[in-house]
Nucleic acid binder design. Structure first.
Lengths: 218, 218
DNA sequence: CAAATAATAAAACAAACGTTCAATTAATTC
DNA sequence: GAATTAATTGAACGTTTGTTTTATTATTTG
């Protein structure tokens, strides 16, 4: 056999991407073989090389698209206001929503960095640093305007990001807590953590420090 | 050649353990070959099998010892007091100190779980859950006594652990911040996060919510 | 309907993998 | 100092790995 009836390059490529994210998240990049990936898509291993030059290229493309997607999502969600509390709230909401939606891809981007060549690792880390820089800027502005009370903005930014991204480790949609509840809780924890003054925050006018239990109503 | 002069089983085994933690942390378990590990120790690959039946056995032993070490450290550091704030402070201090000291081993225990068999994965997760349960109990007690103000103790415990463990991702001893400063900052962030009432906390009587900048004096 | 192109299969490659085995030498015991 | 035990080497095993090449068939184009 050779070309199969109904075969379509675009569909196959999309299927490979999807299967790769899922397989790498589950088994790890090194543990996933090209034959395994091909079989998941219903194709022979050699067919993969029509779409991706090497296994590492595949990994890199997945990671780059994920990081670019994250940046793009934040660019779209970033509010116009200068108010630090409102901007921080938007950052938290966007971060949590994005990562919960793409658990597998986040896993890949966070865990498989060591499988990239030096050059490509640098490229991904550049994207990541740029995204994190946005949070540091918000925190710094908040300290300057007196909206936040923070020891060290760099340390606090890293602590917040680790805390927020960590949601994908334990959270499973459809279990005890809803996405809205989880988001509300992380928002509340974040605001407390940065020492936000209640009256400063217009991030949730109705119930600035409301409990997550009420979040379903939001 | 065969047995080499000055060879000693105990020393070789210790060297293998140490090299394995470092190599797995750097390359990943799947990416590290037994020949690579052996070469790091200055021995042939076959010699490794005198100490560890299989590669997976080696990984499992490293992980189990790490988790048991963490539990043991907490058992030794756990204070006698019933005061939730003091207990939480002790938990944070122990967690951060332990993880900063063993960055590589923590990386291994957190990132290579998927390489364990189902049975062994369960065993490691049991240890982990037991350790996390201690934190949940502290938070629950704090809520009951009114020392803390928390939405959801389960969610908050996970958020705290992710935040604290995340310190190994960005922190490097000897750079901008000292261990004491980092610990003080995380302690302060934790207390705010759980809504600790200032007067409740005897966790640091002199300067309950002191800034990390002063922490060097502690 | 023929020619060109796109998409795949099948087979093969050398290299690397975890692991085993027999042989060999160092250290220890009696 | 001979016998025993401990520690290691070197070679080999069968698999699996990522990747390349060639042939073959489906689809599209003119």
């Amino acid at each position: 056999m050779a070309r199969t009836t109904g075969s379509d390059g675009e569909k196959t490529e999309a299927a490979v991407r999807e299967a790769a994210v899922s397989l790498i998240a589950r088994l790890g990049y090194e543990a996933m073989s090209m034959r395994q990936l091909a079989s998941e898509v219903g194709v022979q291993a050699a067919a993969l090389y029509r779409y991706f030059p090497t296994k590492e290229d595949l990994l890199f493309m997945l990671m780059r698209e994920h990081m670019e997607g994250l940046t793009a999502a934040w660019t779209a969600a970033r509010p116009a206001t200068a108010d630090p509390a409102a901007r921080l709230a938007a950052y938290v909401r966007n971060h949590i929503a994005f990562h919960i939606e793409r658990r597998h891809a986040t896993h890949v981007s966070n865990m498989e960095l060591r499988s990239l060549s030096h050059e490509r690792l640098t490229q991904i880390l550049r994207l990541r640093t740029a995204y994190e820089k946005e949070l540091r800027a918000i925190l710094r502005d908040g300290v300057e305007t007196g909206a936040f009370d923070i020891d060290d903005t760099g340390l606090t930014a890293m602590a917040l990001i680790q805390m927020m991204t960590g949601v994908i480790v334990w959270f499973r949609p459809g279990e005890r807590l809803s996405i809205a509840e989880v988001t509300a809780s992380y928002l509340s924890m974040t605001m407390r953590l940065v020492g936000a003054r209640i009256d400063t925050g217009t991030y949730n006018a109705a119930r600035p420090f409301g409990r997550a239990k009420d979040a379903v109503a939001l």
